[in-house]
């Protein structure tokens, strides 16, 4: 079976079955349009640890039918158990996976990554937890006065 070589940003080389890696539209187009076969394709935005997770996703979905042209609207937590398991990641790593999916143009992975982030946002009980869970830098925080003002306005309207 024909294979494709990839090199990650930390110089680790991967040889992957074409069938598997062609779930990435970027790689598929590069290989088919540009006739890139033997030379390793550099992935300057993707580390090996991130690519490992991406490959796990590709293996889970290798037999999936091609995705529909128009995305199907799904509930935020409507995903298969294997995907749920795969997405049990720290936000830092999850963000890297989302960025990699975006770069490699793997729509399915991008969608489940974003959905998982949305799900985590929904699970947070208040803005403090969102800040903590998503590492929001302190310099970007709204001040407590500002929040109090927003809430006051809210209460004023509520009577």
């Amino acid at each position: 079976m024909a294979s494709v070589k990839l090199t990650t940003s930390d110089d680790k080389e991967y040889t992957l079955d074409r069938e598997l890696i062609f779930q990435s539209n970027l790689i598929k187009n590069m290989v088919t349009d540009l006739d890139v076969f033997d030379a390793p394709i550099p992935l300057p935005n993707v580390t090996s640890s991130t690519l490992d997770i991406v490959i796990k996703y590709l293996k889970i979905h290798k037999d999936d039918p091609p995705p529909p042209d128009k995305p199907i609207e799904k509930a935020v937590d409507d995903m298969i158990d294997e995907d749920k398991e795969l997405m049990k990641l720290e936000f830092n790593i999850m963000a890297d996976v989302i960025l990699a999916a975006n770069y490699l143009d793997i729509p399915g992975l991008l969608d489940i990554g974003c959905r998982t982030v949305a799900w985590h946002i929904k699970q947070c009980k208040d803005y403090h937890e969102i800040r903590e869970k998503f590492n929001i830098p302190k310099e970007l925080w709204r001040s407590e006065e500002e929040i109090a003002e927003m809430k006051k306005e809210l209460n004023g309207i509520l009577g």
Partner: peptide
């Protein structure tokens, strides 16, 4: 990496799943 550093395109997708 924090939530704010994700590109806007990604935020657009996330926002689709938020109320």
């Amino acid at each position: 990496m924090d939530l704010t550093t994700l590109p806007l395109d990604i935020h657009h997708i996330i926002a689709q799943y938020l109320k």
